[in-house]
Structures are given as C-alpha cells and as structure tokens.
Design a protein around this nucleic acid. Structure first.
Length: 398
DNA sequence: TTACATGATTGGCT
DNA sequence: AGCCAATCATGTAA
C-alpha cells in the first residue's frame, strides 16, 4: 500500500510530490503542496518551504506506520496527536480520493443489479399461495376453491381443507417469523457496520460513499438469504399442495345421500336414464359432486345395470317403493308435485314410476320391460336440452 | 387377505 | 360431444 511508496524520496525533481506520479488523486495533495510552496504562510504556521511540508507529510505517514508497534496508550496518544495534526485533513482527503478512484470503482458495476427474475417468481408464487400478502381471503382460500371447482370435491373433504389450511398457515407463520428475523438482523448488522466505519473514518480514509456501498453489499447478502428462505418456503408449499391434491385424486365413494339422489333419478327415469345438462347440473349440486362425476356415475350405472339387471332388481324395487311413498305423501300434502322437496328426486305421475312397481311372482320385472321396450336405451329419445329433472318427469308422464 | 363394489380413465364409436 | 365398454385403482365388508 502506501507505505511502500517512497514517501519522502521524491524531491522537486519530478515536481509532483509523494511519488505517486500522475495519479489523479495526487492533485489535492499537490495543490496543498503548491500553496505551501508558493512561499505564502497563510494557514501553515511555522513553515517556510516545500521541504518542510514534505517532511511534515513524511512524519505523519511514518507515525501511522509505527503506530501499531507501540503500546495501546502510546498509540492512543499518537492517534490523537495525528488527528490534531494540521496536515491531517488534507492528507485524509487525498487518501480518500485515491481510494475512491482505485479499487472500489471496480465494484460499482456489481451494484444496482436488476431485480432477480427468480426472486420475482418466488414472490409471485408466495403471494398466489397466500403465504405472502394479506392474511385472510388471500391465495390460500383461492387456491383451495380453485382446486375444489376444478377437481370436484365432495363435502366430506372439508376436513382436508382445514388440514391444508392449517398446514399452510403454519408455513406462513414460519416464513414471516424468519423473514422478520432476517430483516432485524440485517438492520442491526448494517447499523453496526455503519457505526464501525464511521468510527474508523476518523483514522483511516473511509468516505460516506464507501459506507453506503458497504450497506448495499450487506443488504444484497441478506436478500440472498431471504431468497433462499423464499425458495424453501415455496418448496414446502409445493409439497403440501401435491400431497393435498394427491389425497383428492384418490377415489372416494360418494356419500350415501349423493348415491341415493343419483339412484332416485336413475330408477325414476329408467326408460330413459339420460339426464339433460340441466338435470346433471341439478344432480351435481344436490349431491355435492361435479357434473362430470354425475356423467361417470350414470355411465357406470347404465352399463352395470344392463349387464346384470337381476342384481339390481332389489335396489330398483326399493327406490320404486320409496318414490311411491313420496308421491303419496305429495298427494296428501299441499306441496306441489313438481317440488323436489329436501333434495329428493321424488317424481309424481312419472311413467317410470309405473315401471317401478315391484314384480309379482314369476312376472317379468317392469324395470326389465322398461329397458327392453326402450331397446337397450339405444333408441332413446335424447332429453330436450335444458330439461331439468322436473321437466323430465312431465315428459315421462305422457 | 380376498372378493366384491364403485368411481375414474381410456379408446373407439356415432 | 356424448356415450359405451373395458379396464384400472381404490374402498369396503366379510
């Protein structure tokens, strides 16, 4: 560093002083030198010429060099003396200038880097998942509701919902705690370093800009740690999410109520068990399943029924009786025949209901007849689009 | 553990 | 696009 320069060996021969020839940082010192060399003594007590000035500077630097060789008390005293030295401000500013224009300028390029796209992605994801951002009604609820609407979730999966939510809020809690911790540590560390540098700036060339740069570096380092935190949080959310979705992907039997609703519709429309779009939607709503699940169910049911009518006989009779009972109740009560009541697909005046009469000994089941007369449902009349289960009934009652 | 029940998926057909 | 038929994968009861 500076001690290796021939500090006192530069005579007027090169006219630049201090031997750092041509270095821009030397202008300040040269100007000091110049002023003093002019022979004017303004501000410089007791000095008469350039030789005296150089000796001063040389003295200061020599003292700085040897300061570490001395005891603490001696060093403190020397430090104080140096701080009070008349040449100190000029020398200090020169050193600052040199430092500024040499090594540190190289690091400027590293700063002000554009926002990391990965960090942006992480932030967006955390926001979308409801980990970052507002606590309530945020991404968590949105994510769950989105998953529900797309995947078709039965009501008994609400337990999984709450499980998912609680786990997500756990992750959220840890994330915020850690983030806060990092931010606090960053602030503390920054303050500490700033104080240290300010303190040191009294004895070594540390410019405010350098302090600022150091703060930037610290922030950058801490933001790297925060990015890691965000990354691991995202991973945790992803794992949780995949587990949650996997759990949903597992086949779950429909609730008894849902199966009953579907069966009621099926057996009361046995001659034409093809619910319209609207009927499917109604059934889906009623049974707490999706329209595609309703489609699957009817598809499976039609095939399995057709394959083994005998096996479904008992079930068919059961629903027929059930429906008949509801019909009778409907007749006795003021409630309108078209009312579906409490989620039941009870049908009044339905032709299919007629088919639902339990078979007498040896007689062919009316259900079978219904199937056969309709030619395996092949020649079925497609239900009018937009027909509800109710409008379907009136159709069948003809 | 096993057999059966049942919801979902897939490929082909109309 | 909606349906059928075969099949898969999982739930459930014995």
């Amino acid at each position: 560093m500076l001690q290796q320069q021939p500090l006192t060996g530069n005579g007027p021969s090169n006219g630049r002083g201090l031997g750092v020839s041509g270095h821009p940082g030397m202008h300040a010192l040269n100007s000091v030198h110049q002023r003093r060399s002019d022979g004017g003594d303004s501000g410089l007590e007791g000095t008469e010429n350039g030789h005296e000035t150089r000796r001063d500077i040389g003295d200061i630097l020599q003292q700085i060099m040897t300061i570490t060789d001395q005891s603490l008390d001696e060093a403190q005293a020397k430090k104080h003396a140096l701080n009070c030295h008349r040449m100190k401000p000029a020398l200090f500013s020169v050193l600052c200038e040199i430092k500024e224009k040499t090594g540190l300028s190289m690091r400027n390029a590293q700063e002000d880097d554009a926002q990391d796209p990965q960090l942006v992605r992480l932030d967006n994801m955390l926001l979308a998942e409801g980990v970052a951002g507002p606590e309530k009604g945020g991404g968590a609820a949105a994510a769950v509701s989105a998953a529900t609407s797309s995947g078709g979730m039965s009501p008994d999966s609400s337990l999984e919902h709450s499980d998912y939510k609680s786990k997500l809020s756990q992750i959220r809690g840890i994330y915020h705690t850690e983030l806060e911790k990092y931010e606090q540590a960053c602030t503390e560390f920054t303050t500490h370093v700033m104080n240290l540098l300010r303190e040191q700036s009294r004895t070594r060339p540390v410019t405010p800009r350098e302090i600022e740069r150091m703060v930037g570096i610290i922030h950058h380092k801490f933001s790297t740690i925060q990015t890691q935190l965000k990354q691991s949080t995202c991973e945790a959310v992803m794992i949780l999410r995949s587990r949650f979705l996997d759990a949903r992907r597992k086949r779950r039997n429909f609730s008894k109520q849902a199966t009953e609703g579907l069966n009621e519709y099926f057996y009361s429309h046995l001659s034409n068990p093809y619910p319209s779009e609207e009927a499917k939607e109604d059934l889906a709503k009623l049974c707490g399943i999706t329209v595609s699940q309703v489609c699957n169910w009817f598809g499976n049911k039609r095939i399995r029924y057709k394959k083994n009518i005998g096996k479904f006989q008992e079930e068919a009779n059961l629903y027929a009786m059930k429906t008949a009972l509801v019909v009778r109740q409907g007749d006795d009560s003021p409630h309108t025949p078209n009312s579906t009541g409490s989620g039941s697909f009870s049908l009044t005046g339905s032709a299919d209901l007629f088919l639902g009469v339990p078979p007498v000994n040896g007689e062919q089941s009316a259900y079978q007849m219904g199937l056969q007369t309709n030619g395996n449902w092949k020649g079925r009349n497609s239900p009018p689009s937009g027909a509800s289960p109710l409008s379907d009934q009136s159709e069948n009652s003809d």
